[in-house]
Simulated scan of single mutants.
Amino acid sequence: MSYDFDVGSQHYSYETGKRARETNKVVSGRDLEAIVTLLEVAALSLTTEEGATFARERLIAEARELGGSEIELRDEDIDIVLQKQSFLTRVGKELRLRWANTG
């Protein structure tokens, strides 16, 4: 089964009063909410078993791989997100998903 990812919605234009189709817009690589989501998905991807830990560098590499060439992740934006995030916890020098805590 194939899916059409060219998702759009229809609305009435303020200018013309006619129906217009609006398609999804590419998210900026500087959108912090998008970076949070990408890092969280990367952390999920690296959590292959309960309590699994991973290095910060591995998390960022995974996020960049998942984001592909269309999303440029800047180090300063990643730092902002990692300082404010609530889905990871430190285990020594590594990170782990907060819900994956075993102790």
Score class of each variant (00 low, 15 high):
1 M>W: 05
1 M>G: 09
1 M>I: 00
4 D>Y: 03
4 D>C: 10
4 D>I: 08
5 F>I: 12
5 F>Q: 06
5 F>A: 09
6 D>P: 01
8 G>Q: 05
8 G>D: 01
8 G>P: 03
9 S>T: 10
9 S>Q: 12
10 Q>T: 04
10 Q>P: 02
10 Q>A: 08
10 Q>R: 02
10 Q>V: 04
11 H>N: 05
13 S>I: 07
13 S>V: 02
15 E>P: 01
15 E>Q: 12
15 E>C: 06
16 T>P: 00
18 K>V: 00
18 K>L: 07
18 K>M: 02
18 K>T: 01
20 A>S: 07
21 R>V: 06
25 K>E: 03
25 K>M: 08
27 V>M: 12
28 S>G: 04
28 S>R: 01
29 G>A: 05
31 D>V: 02
32 L>N: 02
32 L>M: 03
33 E>W: 10
33 E>Y: 11
33 E>A: 04
34 A>G: 10
34 A>M: 13
34 A>H: 11
35 I>L: 01
35 I>F: 03
38 L>P: 00
39 L>C: 11
41 V>N: 13
41 V>K: 15
42 A>G: 09
43 A>G: 12
43 A>M: 04
43 A>L: 03
44 L>N: 14
44 L>F: 14
44 L>E: 10
45 S>N: 08
45 S>W: 13
45 S>Y: 02
46 L>C: 15
46 L>A: 12
46 L>G: 06
47 T>K: 06
48 T>I: 05
48 T>D: 09
49 E>P: 09
49 E>C: 11
49 E>A: 13
49 E>H: 14
50 E>L: 11
50 E>I: 08
51 G>W: 00
53 T>I: 06
53 T>N: 12
54 F>P: 06
55 A>S: 04
55 A>Y: 04
56 R>K: 08
56 R>L: 12
56 R>A: 13
57 E>D: 15
57 E>Q: 14
59 L>D: 05
59 L>H: 10
60 I>N: 09
61 A>V: 14
62 E>S: 11
63 A>S: 00
64 R>Q: 10
65 E>R: 13
65 E>I: 10
66 L>N: 00
67 G>S: 03
68 G>R: 01
69 S>N: 09
73 L>I: 07
74 R>E: 14
75 D>Q: 11
75 D>N: 07
76 E>A: 15
76 E>V: 11
76 E>G: 04
76 E>W: 00
78 I>A: 05
79 D>H: 06
80 I>W: 13
80 I>Q: 13
80 I>G: 06
81 V>S: 08
81 V>A: 07
82 L>I: 12
83 Q>T: 13
84 K>W: 11
84 K>Y: 06
85 Q>V: 00
85 Q>E: 15
85 Q>W: 00
88 L>N: 03
89 T>C: 07
90 R>Y: 02
91 V>H: 12
91 V>M: 09
92 G>L: 08
94 E>R: 15
94 E>A: 10
94 E>K: 15
96 R>Q: 02
96 R>L: 05
99 W>N: 03
99 W>I: 11
100 A>F: 05
102 T>A: 06
103 G>P: 01
103 G>D: 12
